[in-house]
Write a protein that binds this DNA or RNA. Structure first.
Lengths: 252, 252
DNA sequence: GCTTGACCCTCACGTAGCGGCAGGCGGGAG
DNA sequence: CTCCCGCCTGCCGCTACGTGAGGGTCAAGC
């Protein structure tokens, strides 16, 4: 079977210009031409094109692809292994970036302003292993995440204002309670912890008691979130953490 | 504090040329110049640079970064969501390619020749959901995979020849047994299934009984592997599948 | 046989995000 | 005063094509 450029382009999902380019640089020259100078591609050309596109998708520069394909002594298994490694590295990098973005999104819900430094830390010397563990511990429940993002995407400015008002009201009440000297495991504190859980459930994602305690622990473990609550009132981060745990235990 | 281009370049880990370029396109112009025309960057410039690099790392084109940073009304959350989606898509794509490569690696162990079509299928209209489920069912045990790859990477040509000889010997014996009319759940068939499991364990990765039955099912479910065994002897794929299951049950 | 429209050809310049030079000035140390 | 390092402004080069311009070709319909 013989194909014209246009046919090949459609088959392979590339533009004609791309095929011209590959011909120009000698990466993929059609096996023949018609008398009028039209390019004619045969099945072998198609196979080669598929290989080319495969390597291209893996991020190889075209020149290198030429070398790989044209080298008859090349070990295909070695290429596969190499590709696999490359992909793994890229996946890891992407995963880190996704984590960074999710962190930024979560932080923005609490109106925490990330400093450029913080935004930037994903590029720093952060140990990927540690980062991974941290991420899993923090946003392990990806379903909740997606759910949250779905909801948030539909919020209007008004919704945000109402959420903020609600949040601030809750904040004033828990600060007052803490100031009154009521212990963190008092019924009143637990009620406010429960309210906190329901605010999250209503606005972001279905928050279980277990997930709630995980969140509470993060408020203490991560200084950014600690700072957020400590900024409202000193001692609030620990107070809230304890109240959430007490609430989770008593309702379980 | 004021910094020269060179200092900023070292601090931020970019080249001087990059800073010149950002100045040229108006993405990041230093807040001042010395009388001699030297660029002078201050702390605010550094902050802006970090933001720029952050968005750049996330894959935004420079022009868009300019718009994002310079537009005070822009919704950063919307950008984050968008970028999160983009990254997710890219991750999915990479994951599919990893799966395809792992498939190719597994196939090459059995000396199955993949056609370019098959190599190419990752670009096709394969339903990602289905693909994902298939991949999980197939190579769920990633540890086994890594282990296998580690070992295989050290094999010499001699190792491969010995493995092949061993494999072919086993093949001849199971074909003979099947031809003799012995049922697939006979002790002899189960012994050969067990031997099959041990060959895998010895050469590739620690193969549990459970993993072995999973593999056996794949031999029937995936036509490429089915074809491999059917090519040795008609009916062998089903016969081996049954023998492996019988063996797993009896040894459990 | 002729037109029409879809297809093909070859230049050839434009794009992003810089890399890397040339040719020339500035600035602090010895 | 010299030396060398750092800075400056062009400006051309690179990859992997996109996007025309200007013109030939092919199959179908009239």
């Amino acid at each position: 079977m013989a194909y014209t450029v246009g046919q090949v382009a459609k088959l392979a999902g590339v533009t004609i210009r791309t095929l011209h380019h590959y011909d120009e640089i000698g990466l993929l020259s059609p096996s023949g031409r018609t008398s009028a100078g039209y390019r004619r591609y045969d099945d072998a050309d198609l196979q080669r094109l598929q290989l080319v596109l495969y390597y291209r998708e893996l991020g190889f520069p075209l020149e290198e692809i030429t070398a790989i394909i044209d080298d008859p002594a090349a070990d295909p298994a070695a290429h596969l292994r190499r590709q696999h490694e490359l992909l793994t590295v890229r996946m890891k990098r992407l995963q880190e970036m996704v984590t960074a973005i999710e962190f930024a999104m979560e932080a923005s819900k609490l109106n925490i302003q990330l400093t450029p430094q913080e935004r930037f830390e994903v590029f720093g010397d952060v140990d990927p292993e540690e980062h991974q563990a941290e991420a899993e511990q923090r946003w392990g429940d990806t379903d909740a995440y997606r759910e949250s993002n779905r909801r948030v995407a539909r919020y209007t400015k008004d919704d945000w204002l109402r959420h903020r008002a609600e949040n601030e009201d809750w904040g004033r009440r828990i600060v007052a309670l803490m100031a009154s000297g009521a212990p963190a495991d008092s019924p009143e504190a637990m009620d406010l912890a429960e309210e906190h859980r329901q605010i999250i459930s209503r606005w972001f994602y279905e928050c279980s008691y277990e997930g709630h305690t995980g969140l509470a622990d993060m408020y203490l473990a991560d200084e950014r979130f600690t700072a957020y609550y400590e900024n409202i009132a000193p001692g609030l981060a620990a107070y809230l953490n304890e109240a959430i745990h007490a609430n989770a235990i008593s309702r379980a």
